[in-house]
């Protein structure tokens, strides 16, 4: 019983981390109709930001997160202006391969600048745990889990309770009608993309004390994030959160029962199955999967 609880707890915590990435990715898809292949690269940049500020200036990631997140936000602004917005409304090949090209570029820029060496940040949070009811919880994981939930809640509140949030929802539902109602659609795109990648960057900083840092670290996570957003329904924020926690638990459970590699295979099989049987995911709007532009 204790073991089951521990596995579920581990799964939930890792699922929380995934949620922070998945919510951003699904928001970008819902609003811009772009699958952001470069999403996890912003997490990677956040990790390196945390590493350099820690190793040069001795800044704790829990401090530097307030410096790095705005920088990643600005980077998101630049990327949206230069790459993403130029691809919107173009053929599928442009939409897909523009961000895929960006992902290759960022990954290898990191590889060239900072080498393939595996780096790590060690702070008080590294390896420290606290025990609740016999279940051991990593401090760093719990902090990032809380940050992820806070972000998801804040985003939900923003989208449903504020004027600008409602404007974003309007663009997600029908960009032409939204434009006719006087909403600056391009600004909505810019804002959405930058906020989403800034969240990815923030997550990178928060997990720096416990994850190893290397140029291709984003790639090890991005496919899992794809699985999550499709399961939850591409474009659905609550769906992404629920699916992230679910995948976290499945991953932890399968990893324990049948080994990590075959566990991974299992959820990819589930992913393919969901795409075939219910492409709109569990929470997605029906017909979202055939939406053209």
């Amino acid at each position: 019983m204790q073991l089951v609880l521990q596995i579920v707890a581990n799964g939930l915590l890792i699922g929380g981390l995934y949620a922070l990435l998945a919510v951003g990715l699904t928001l970008i898809f819902g609003v811009l109709r772009v699958v952001n292949f470069a999403h996890a690269e912003f997490m990677m940049l956040g990790m390196y930001g945390a590493y350099w500020l820690w190793s040069i200036y001795g800044l704790d990631p829990y401090v530097s997160v307030f410096l790095i997140t705005p920088v990643v936000f600005l980077l998101g602004v630049a990327v949206d202006r230069l790459v993403v917005q130029r691809s919107i409304g173009k053929p599928d090949v442009t939409v897909v391969f523009a961000t895929l090209g960006l992902s290759i570029l960022l990954q290898n820029a990191a590889l060239t600048l900072w080498r393939a060496d595996i780096r790590s940040v060690s702070t008080f949070a590294t390896g420290s745990v606290f025990v609740v009811g016999g279940v051991r919880l990593s401090v760093a994981m719990t902090v990032s889990f809380a940050a992820a939930l806070l972000f998801a809640l804040g985003l939900w509140f923003f989208l449903t309770r504020t004027m600008y949030g409602k404007a974003i929802q309007a663009v997600a539902q029908n960009r032409r009608a939204a434009a006719l109602m006087g909403i600056d659609v391009k600004r909505v795109y810019l804002f959405t993309y930058s906020v989403a990648v800034a969240a990815a960057g923030a997550m990178g900083v928060l997990v720096a004390p416990i994850f190893t840092i290397f140029p291709r670290v984003g790639q090890t996570h991005i496919v899992t994030i794809f699985v999550i957003v499709v399961l939850g329904g591409l474009g659905s924020v609550p769906g992404a959160v629920v699916a992230a926690l679910l995948v976290g638990i499945i991953r932890a459970g399968a990893g324990f029962l049948i080994g990590t590699a075959w566990g991974e295979l299992a959820y990819f099989a589930v992913f393919l199955l969901v795409l075939i049987v219910r492409p709109q995911g569990f929470f997605g709007r029906r017909g979202a999967e055939v939406y053209g532009g």
Partner: peptide
């Protein structure tokens, strides 16, 4: 290798755009 792939990624982006 790394720098070559940077150019690859850039080329891909520019071509599709």
């Amino acid at each position: 290798g790394g720098a070559a792939l940077v150019v690859y990624g850039f080329l891909l982006m520019v071509i599709v755009l």
